Amino acid sequence: MKKLLFAVVLLITTIASAQKNSILLGGNVGYASEKLGDSKLENFEFSPRVGYQFAEKCTAGVEGSIMNVKTTGIDKTEKYKIGGFVRYSTPLSQMFSVFADLGAGYQNTSVNNAKGFYASLTPALFINMKNGFGLNFSIGGINYDNLDGKNDPRQENLGFNFGKTLNIGISKNFGL
């Protein structure tokens, strides 16, 4: 079971560089489980994306995220995000491209009904396999989050996680 969950986490699907005037579909699926003594933390996230490549190297679209976090002995937490993204990609050859995604939007969490803003910058590598299918690889990025709840002080987080994460995904380009 742990191997399956690890495979799901690694098989994070994102949209990739594609041809002008094409629709890009993708998203992330992730699961994490951590046990500390008698306490267990489980985290599940689903993050779909839809984009339109309006120029040879530029894509814009919308992204969302639903995250559920369960901790033994504590209520379940749900977190939602909705926003937009832009992508700039540069082909290195017919097979390889590099790209950077810049995303930003609104977020809400069920803990004290906290609301706020998020932003992220993620560089990645795309490998073109065949017929619009490809593999995406990223090893982290820069993330900013802020949340302001009714009974809690404002929380701000700035994360720089290059080399601390590995995302591997598949993507499909749908030409118009």
Rank of each mutant, 00 (worst) to 15 (best):
N128K: 10
L41D: 13
K70Q: 07
M1F: 02
E63T: 06
I66N: 06
T71I: 11
M67K: 13
N131V: 00
N136A: 10
K130S: 15
K164H: 14
Y80W: 14
S97A: 12
E156I: 11
S17G: 12
I168C: 10
D145S: 10
G140N: 03
S97C: 05
K172W: 03
R154P: 12
I23T: 12
F137G: 07
L5H: 07
K130Q: 15
L92V: 14
K40L: 02
N21P: 02
K20H: 06
F133A: 11
I74D: 07
Y31K: 04
F126M: 09
K150H: 13
T72Y: 00
V29W: 04
Q107A: 09
Y31L: 09
I82F: 12
K40P: 06
L166R: 06
I66Q: 06
T90H: 09
E156S: 15
T77S: 09
G37M: 05
I127N: 10
K20F: 03
F117A: 13
G159V: 00
L25E: 03
A60V: 15
G149A: 07
Y88Q: 05
Q19V: 07
G140F: 00
V62I: 15
N128I: 03
R154C: 12
F46K: 02
G132S: 09
I74Y: 05
G27L: 09
K164W: 01
L166A: 15
R49L: 12
K2Q: 15
G37S: 10
N108F: 01
S110K: 03
T14F: 04
V29N: 07
D101N: 09
N68T: 12
